[in-house]
Amino acid sequence: MRGVPSAVVLCRRAAACCAALLLVTSCGRAGADDDEGGRLPGAPTGVSAEAGSATSVHVMWNALPGGDGISRYEVYRGARKVLEVPASRHMVDVTRLRPSTAYAFSVRARGTDGRLGPPSRKVRARTPAAGPADRSAPTRPGSARGRTAGSRAVHLSWSASEDDRGVVSYDIYQGDTKVHSVGGNQTAAVVAGLRPGARYVFTVRARDAADNLSPAGSAVRLTTPGSDDGRATAPGDFRATTRRADGAYHIELSWVPPRTDGVVTEYQIHLDGKPATSLVYGGKVPSGRATYSFYAGPEKGVTHRVRVRAKLPDGTWGGFSAERTVTTGAR
C-alpha cells in the first residue's frame, strides 16, 4: 500500500534513531566525566622569551588565575618538553642551546589532578653568536632605584653595565631568587605578583653572551602599599597540646599548610610572642596536615602561647595562625 513504509525502511529508521540516542547518551556521559575530573588548566598568557647568552634563553609567563589548582608548569622547545617547574615559578632558563640559532617555546600548565592544559602561544628567540673565549664579566649595574606600581607590583630601573663584548640580559633577583629577566638593551623592568603590605629586596645583575654574570647592583628595598590581614596566607586549623616524655614536657603542634601558588618548605614557630624555632623541610613536604614537636622544659604547670607562620614561595612571611595557649602537664 502506498504511504506505508516497508519493514526494511522501518528497521533502518529505528537503527538510525537508536544510533542517535546512543551518541547523545555518550556525549552526556563524557561531559559528566569532565566535570568529575575537575576543570582543565587554561593556557598560560604573557609568555615571552629573551636570549640570556649564546647558549641560553629566558622564558617567562604570567601565573594562571586561581593557581591553587596548578601543580607545575611545563616548558616546551618546539614539541619537546625541556623543563618543568613548581607552580610558584613563572620563569626558567633553557640552557645548552646552540649559538646563532632561532628557537620557539611554549608553556603548559599541569593541574593538581595530573591533567595537562593546552599550550600557550609560541614565542621565538634567537641566541647571539658565540665569540672568542670570554672570561670577563660585565660591570655592576649602577644607580638602582625603584617605586611601587600599585599594591602588587614594583617598577625597577638601573644604569647600564659595561662589557667588552656587550650585555645580553639583566637578571632581577628578589632576595636570593631570580624572578625576572630583560634584554641587554633594557634598563627597567616591572615585577608583578607581589603581596600588599609586604617588604621586598631586589637586586640586578648583568649577563654577557658567554654567561659571565656581573656582581649585584645596590639593593632596592620597597614595601608595597596596602594591608594584608594574613588570613589568606596563614596556616589553618592550628592545634597545640603538651605531652611528657623522658622526664620533660614537649609541645605538640599540627596545622594545615596555607594555600599558595607553590610549595611551602619553611615555618617559624613563635612562643610567648617571640620566635622560638624553625621547621625546614629538606625532602618531601607533607601534602596534608603538618606536625611538629619541640622541647618545653621539665616544669609542670607552665603556660605558653604559641602560633606558627609560613615562609611563602615569594620569600616573604605569611600571616600567623591563630594563637593557642597550652599548659605543661594539663589534661
Rank of each mutant, 00 (worst) to 15 (best):
L10A: 13
A125F: 02
R140D: 00
S287N: 10
P65D: 12
S151F: 02
R140H: 00
F105V: 05
L253N: 03
A198P: 01
A129V: 08
F238H: 05
L156W: 05
V167H: 01
V24H: 10
Y295H: 13
N62Q: 12
H180G: 02
I251F: 05
P258E: 03
R121G: 13
V9C: 04
K284S: 13
G283D: 13
R152E: 15
W317N: 04
R12E: 13
T95R: 14
D208H: 07
G131V: 14
S293M: 05
I251D: 00
L64G: 03
D171H: 14
A137P: 10
E84I: 00
A16C: 08
I251V: 15
R126K: 09
G262H: 07
R305S: 15
H155N: 06
P141F: 00
D272R: 12
M60W: 00
R121C: 00
A192E: 15
T303L: 06
L213W: 03
K178Q: 14
V204I: 11
G28A: 10
A210D: 09
T187W: 00
Y76W: 14
V308T: 05
S136I: 15
H250A: 03
F105N: 02
V94H: 02
K284V: 14
S157R: 14
A198C: 03
K122L: 05
D208V: 05
A245L: 14
A51P: 14
R331C: 02
T241L: 08
D34S: 10
A54W: 05
Y267A: 01
S143M: 07
S136Y: 02
M1S: 10
S227I: 06
D246Y: 11
A137F: 00
Y267W: 13
D208W: 04
R108L: 01
T203K: 03
D314P: 12
A130T: 11
P138K: 06
P313K: 09
D176T: 14
P257V: 09
S100C: 02
T223G: 03
T25W: 14
V280G: 02
T233V: 09
E299C: 05
P5N: 12
T224L: 14
Y295F: 14
G318Q: 02
T101M: 04
V280S: 11
R80A: 14
V191R: 01
P41I: 03
T303E: 11
G217K: 08
T55M: 05
R126G: 02
R165V: 11
G184Q: 02
